[in-house]
Amino acid sequence: MIDFFQEIGGFIMTPLYYAISFVLDLFHQMFSALGLDPAGGASWALSIIGLTLVIRAALIPLFVKQIKSSRNMQLIQPKVKELQKKYGHDRERLAQETMKLYRESGTNPFASCLPILLQMPIFLALFQILNNASKEIPKGVLTQTQARQFGEAELLGVPLSSTFIGADGDVGVMVMAALLVLAMTATTFLTQRQLMSKNMPPDALTGPYAQQQKLLLFVLPVVFAVGGIAFPIGVLLYWTTSNLWTMGQQFYVIRNNPAPGTPAFAAKEKRDAAKAARHGTVEPEAASETGSGTTTATEERPAQRQQPKRQSREQRKKQGKGRSGQQKPPPADTPPTHETQ
């Protein structure tokens, strides 16, 4: 049974070894051509960052799907609560109706985990490549010389293959590993916190889904912090860069396409109204709707009644002759003249 799982794991991981090492090799050749030392830690560290950016760029479609699914999960929470009140006594019926609601709204409750789940094999593959390189064992397309360079590469005097628990009292390794673990933990926490505080409506902050999100808010950073002490410096660099990418990408999406009824949506409406006001494109009705409290001149003063023009005696005589001798009484608004008195 163990051999079977090992074969399955090898079948999955072997293509990743070649793909990751191929991208690493491309970036390493590029930075070496730019004048960086091929055996130096800077060239290999930048290659890891380049690998991270390529992977995250490839995962953008999944990230968009994750954002849409998370938004749908937030927006249907009031309906989920209604189902819980209606079928709370029947768990089987509640599960059926909830899944039906997910299908109708196009929501996948597991979509939010896809980017992390897909990155885990990549994460493990990079770990194995770097770990084997420290033993001068090449994996994928890396040559023996590249594996030795990768395994011995140092960044600020700290080997990229070293770990916090394997520092053997090396203060430099422990400090750099600790800083990267803290950075990885903090960025994981802030990314989740950003989503909950900015892009969740009030109704979505209560209920089972909200409790799950709050649990992940604190559990995931702890898991990464505990596991991070066993990760090589190069792997910590990959994960921290990936988290920074996630924060920036999520900030852009929340700022420009927030979910309705959220603080981010209200902030975007204010920015749009202020931008329109600066360019002079706000209509009077729109300005009053945005809460400016101003009214137009036509709203403040009622329409005035137009008074008839006063005519001279000669003009009245000419009008009387032109009406074939039929003289009409003067208008009610016209004040009496000396002739009619």
Results as ranks from 00 to 15, higher is better:
259 A>K: 01
209 Y>F: 11
272 D>W: 03
274 A>I: 13
1 M>Y: 08
67 I>W: 07
340 T>G: 03
282 V>P: 01
199 N>Q: 06
78 P>Y: 09
292 S>A: 14
210 A>S: 14
297 A>P: 04
62 L>T: 11
338 H>L: 12
122 I>W: 06
183 A>Y: 02
218 F>G: 13
289 E>G: 01
226 V>Q: 03
22 F>L: 11
321 K>R: 14
78 P>M: 09
119 Q>L: 13
210 A>N: 03
114 L>V: 15
42 A>G: 01
159 P>W: 02
170 D>N: 15
22 F>N: 10
91 R>I: 11
53 L>S: 06
301 R>Y: 13
126 L>Y: 03
83 L>T: 08
299 E>S: 13
198 K>C: 08
18 Y>V: 13
248 G>D: 02
64 V>E: 12
272 D>Y: 04
88 G>I: 07
111 A>Q: 10
70 S>Y: 01
315 Q>M: 09
51 L>A: 09
295 T>P: 00
73 M>V: 07
315 Q>E: 15
140 G>N: 06
215 L>H: 02
5 F>C: 07
340 T>N: 14
104 E>L: 14
255 R>S: 15
121 P>R: 11
96 Q>T: 10
73 M>T: 10
223 V>E: 00
19 A>N: 03
34 L>I: 07
102 Y>M: 08
97 E>Q: 12
207 G>F: 00
319 Q>Y: 08
195 L>C: 04
3 D>W: 05
305 R>K: 14
69 S>V: 09
286 A>F: 05
